[in-house]
Write a protein that binds this DNA or RNA. Structure first.
Lengths: 383, 383
DNA sequence: TTCGATGATTGAAACGTTTTAATCCGGAAC
DNA sequence: GTTCCGGATTAAAACGTTTCAATCATCGAA
């Protein structure tokens, strides 16, 4: 029986990575079986526990509840003890444990924004809008970046839900993803940013992309262009689809031949894709080459501008360029870029607002907010 | 005595916002005084409790500990029960409560990066580096933006510390701020990103700015410039100070008159500040105007480029421009911008790595990592 | 048969807060 | 002198996990 005990101890001991057995640490306990076949021992613990309200209470000579009151309802505690508690806190280096706070109170103080692409200034501007709105309500915003990757988006969504954030703003890879519905159904307010759904199953804030496409083409028509390229992709992206739809309808409304509205697809929406599109455009014989390009976002427009400039073409004389988003760098480009501007900051502010009102409880019906884009004409189309 | 009881009840009742008193809800309790002067009542609670492990356990017919094991040590539980528990989870829509998890286990699964300016692509690139490194270790990264505002930085630091993040990466407004030391002393690993301190009191990852300044000036000297403006501010910013120091020492090493290295201060480091500096530069008589400008970052360089182009000057013939950071938009500018490149992504990766090793425990000595910048010459200085 | 080993499962104790009913106490009102 | 009131304070019960010793069941070897 003694053997058994020792064997068991040694196994566990080894499992825990110990190499030497210190018998002084072994203490016997009795079991229901009546024998000495179970053992317990202590290991030296690196007593690095952090300071808790309990410690503060002890140091200040008050009860634990009073410390909590100092933190949460300062007016309920007399000035003298308040000072004493505050002093104890700084003395001991007390840091409130947010996990415990949130677990007990059930309320989180953060709003989350899951960005599609943090390197695109459009989304950081939206984020800035969210931040300003959240700040006025005393919430902090945490940002995450999916980088257009579904798996990462999924992982971030899960973590945010587990963290019980107050609201979850997201520019999703696919706005129709059922994951979003699942999250919302389980109780986290979800707001789709810069995308929409056809139904009203979730709150969303976006800009009227069909109208934006129309505005862009109308501007180019005004400037006399009759052979235009629409550059953008991927084809299944809602933004691209809608803007193209608007462009096409404006084009046909003007009674022009659909053939003359060339569509150039790109892999993605980055500067590199614009350069690549530029190469294809430059490769066309001058007679068939469009006189203007309407890019589905500014990054593509910038890449295009750079590429065709390198190839010796001039903007807007040889090729007028119209972008979309009006990011700060658009105005600072080699040839200041005309662009369709979206109210980015307001997009963020409104989204945050929707999330917070939904989180506040009360009767809620999902809202779909649609902003109107506006044309900003600069040298790249004016000449 | 009856009166007293009713008075007390009514007061509390009113405090809770009730307008009508439902006597059926009142239940008397006896107190130590023996009288009926204390009361208790129940209010209808909106039973909206979320699903917990307890519920899952009940549904699956196992104990609460087993559910936890399915979550954390799946190999310790038999396949059959594992499936049963998993099924119960999806049926009930169970979402693990991260607060409770972290409170009990004491371990957080997130790394935080507090950015100085989310709209500056330099920092989002650093963030991308952090993300890739963290991902390989199974951590998620949350981003926050201080927008160069000390108060907001402070608030975010506090929240992150309260959340007990595993590591806290920060590009601070002021790297010498004692707040950072305080946070680190209390146990959160802190890594300063893209800034350094003179002492080694914290881990930091940065790029050798003195060397960067030197490299920049040497390039301009190579191109034959003998009257150069160094543009940047604020003067008390470490980056600005160091790059200027490097620039000056390279200048004097070449045996040139310090007077000919003009210094133009700017308010901040944004595009608008570059434009403003451009106006001042254009205002100078051509004879005294520098032939090249070395800007302390690309945003200023872009603003400068835009402004002097508008004023009819040409780059690089009338004014060569050299930036710093080599952000993507530098290459895409009207005149592709020469720039001093910093290894942004690697900066982020290394910072994340430092934080995680410090968090892993064990003996730790703070490290100061310094990367070497490199010159990327483009049309804005080559012509 | 019995004992020991192994693997699956359970029960109960944490973790650090917030919440809330209860207590205490000095003073005002009767 | 009671009685009542209100403000300050306290004690104890949550919150939803993870952890870990203890138990249970099964099986192989002695």
């Amino acid at each position: 029986m003694w053997e058994t005990g020792v064997t068991q101890i040694l196994r566990k001991w080894r499992e825990q990575g110990h190499t030497r057995l210190d018998c002084a640490k072994i203490v016997s306990t009795r079991t229901s079986r009546g024998g000495l076949d179970q053992w317990r021992w202590t290991v030296p613990t690196s007593a690095n526990r952090s300071v808790s309200v309990k410690d503060v209470a002890a140091a200040a000579g008050v009860s634990l509840g009073t410390v909590s009151n100092v933190l949460n309802k300062p007016d309920r505690v007399s000035e003298a003890t308040r000072q004493r508690v505050l002093a104890a806190m700084t003395d001991l280096g007390f840091v409130r444990n947010e996990s415990a706070r949130q677990l007990r109170s059930g309320v989180s103080r953060t709003l989350a924004y899951l960005m599609l692409d943090a390197s695109n200034p459009f989304f950081t501007d939206v984020a800035a809008g969210i931040e300003t709105e959240a700040e006025t309500h005393g919430l902090t915003v945490v940002l995450c970046n999916s980088g257009s990757r579904g798996a990462r988006e999924q992982a971030h969504l899960e973590l945010f839900e587990q963290q019980r954030v107050q609201g979850l703003l997201v520019t999703p890879v696919d706005p129709d993803s059922p994951t979003l519905d699942a999250v919302a159904r389980r109780g986290t307010p979800v707001v789709i940013v810069d995308r929409t759904r056809d139904d009203d199953s979730l709150c969303s804030v976006a800009v009227d992309d069909v109208l934006g496409g129309r505005i862009g083409i109308e501007h180019l028509l005004d400037r006399g262009h009759r052979r235009v390229a629409f550059i953008g992709g991927p084809a299944d992206l809602g933004q691209v689809r809608d803007r193209l739809e608007g462009a096409r309808s404006a084009w046909s409304d003007a009674g022009l031949d659909p053939e003359d509205l060339l569509t150039l697809r790109t892999e993605d929406l980055r500067v590199a894709d614009g350069r690549e599109a530029g190469q294809r455009l430059v490769g066309l014989p001058a007679s068939r080459r469009p006189t203007a390009a309407f890019c589905v976002n500014d990054l593509i427009a910038l890449g295009l501008l750079q590429q065709i400039t390198q190839a010796g073409l001039r903007t807007p004389d040889d090729l007028a360029i119209l972008g979309y988003d009006d990011i700060d760098y658009a105005a600072a480009a080699a040839v200041p870029l005309s662009s369709v501007r979206q109210p980015r900051q307001q997009l963020g502010r409104t989204a945050a607002d929707l999330a917070m009102t939904e989180a506040a409880g009360g009767p809620h019906t999902h809202r779909r907010v649609l902003f109107t884009p506006e044309l900003v004409a600069r040298a790249s189309t004016l000449g």
